[in-house]
């Protein structure tokens, strides 16, 4: 069943010039059709101004389509009566952690959402507890959000959304303002929520490394949906992505460059382990070398770890 479904979604807005000039129409989203299944981890890519944020704002009725329909958990976002239900089902986390804090104490900040939904007090506290625990922020419940790091603030924002018991979290570049540690914390937290709670995650990002965990990737350009597929499928199109002002993970780029030089490496390599295995296969002419068997044999613990990570089709 689709939690999010767009049918020929279009969004136009008018830009007014000075002194009564005729307004110009901007087509921010054009003819987008997509379906997102419950429990999926989805990434949306696209350069600045490609329409990704505009599309995302349709997913919890912050914007309604000027053409076509957006369905959120079978509700049409055009229906004014359903807006509050929609926003409870689909929560949004924005880029700037400092813009989404409403309270001076972490636990009150997290309780703000359910309180607005009219949830009874006991239940609010239970939810606050629960969501702070799931985002790893329970130790900070009595802290002031201002004293937290960027990654911690974003996890508080995610806890605030979780406390509304949504089916879906939409995150618009949640890591853009964070350092590598903060980015890692936030991505780890949402991946955990996606796995353990089954929450649908829609992640908009410019960091290609964050995309490789997604079940499905959508690529936007000039308001249109131009590519969709698994990360491996999407990142197999290195040159097309560059034309769309996007990038691929560096390991994928290196594999692509070597492939162009005539090495027999598959397209769409996503991890260092995959890459190293592919190179070793080339060196050994397909067979596993004695040296490698020895290396693995000498350290059984390492072999277990490696076997875990390795893609069976490559060994």
């Amino acid at each position: 069943m689709s939690i999010i479904k767009a049918d020929n979604l279009n969004y136009d807005y008018l830009e007014y010039g000075e002194d009564g000039e005729k307004p110009e129409i901007t087509h921010a989203v054009r003819d987008v059709n997509l379906k997102i299944k419950e429990g999926q981890f989805i990434a949306i890519l696209g350069h600045n101004g490609s329409g990704k944020s505009t599309l995302a704002k349709h997913m919890n009725a912050l914007l309604v389509p000027t053409g076509g329909t957006m369905w959120v958990d079978q509700m049409d976002t055009h229906e004014d009566d359903e807006v509050w239900d929609i926003r409870q089902r689909a929560g949004m986390v924005f880029q700037n952690p400092d813009n989404q804090i409403v309270s001076s104490v972490v636990e009150e900040d997290v309780g703000f959402g359910p309180e607005n939904l009219g949830v009874p007090t006991d239940e609010i506290w239970k939810r606050v507890d629960d969501s702070l625990r799931k985002t790893g922020m329970i130790a900070y419940r009595h802290h002031s959000p201002n004293k937290l790091s960027g990654g911690q603030k974003q996890r508080v924002a995610i806890a605030g959304v979780m406390a509304m018991k949504p089916k879906c979290i939409i995150m618009d570049e949640p890591t853009a303002m964070l350092d590598p540690n903060g980015r890692h914390e936030v991505i780890q937290a949402v991946r955990d929520l996606n796995k353990s709670e089954g929450v649908t995650v829609i992640l908009i990002t410019h960091y290609m490394e964050e995309v490789i965990y997604a079940d499905n990737v959508f690529v936007m350009d000039e308001g249109r949906l131009v590519m969709q597929g698994t990360p491996r499928e999407i990142f197999s199109h290195v040159d097309e992505l560059h034309e769309l002002r996007l990038d691929v993970p560096h390991v994928t780029q290196l594999a692509h460059a070597l492939r162009l030089k005539g090495l027999d490496i598959p397209e769409g390599i996503l991890s260092i382990d995959e890459f190293v295995d592919a190179i070793m296969k080339i060196r050994d002419g397909g067979a596993v070398s004695d040296e490698r068997k020895q290396a693995l044999g000498e350290n059984p613990e390492e072999r277990e770890n490696k076997a875990d990570r390795e893609n069976p089709s490559l060994t």
Binding site: D179, P180, N181, H250, V251, D273, V276, R283, A295
Partner: peptide, 20 residues
């Protein structure tokens, strides 16, 4: 220190470990 090296550094070390 909560930092990392570029992805290339990790790739090159992994290849070296495997004897390349």
């Amino acid at each position: 220190m909560g930092l990392a090296a570029p992805q290339m550094t990790y790739i090159m070390h992994a290849l070296k470990e495997r004897g390349l």
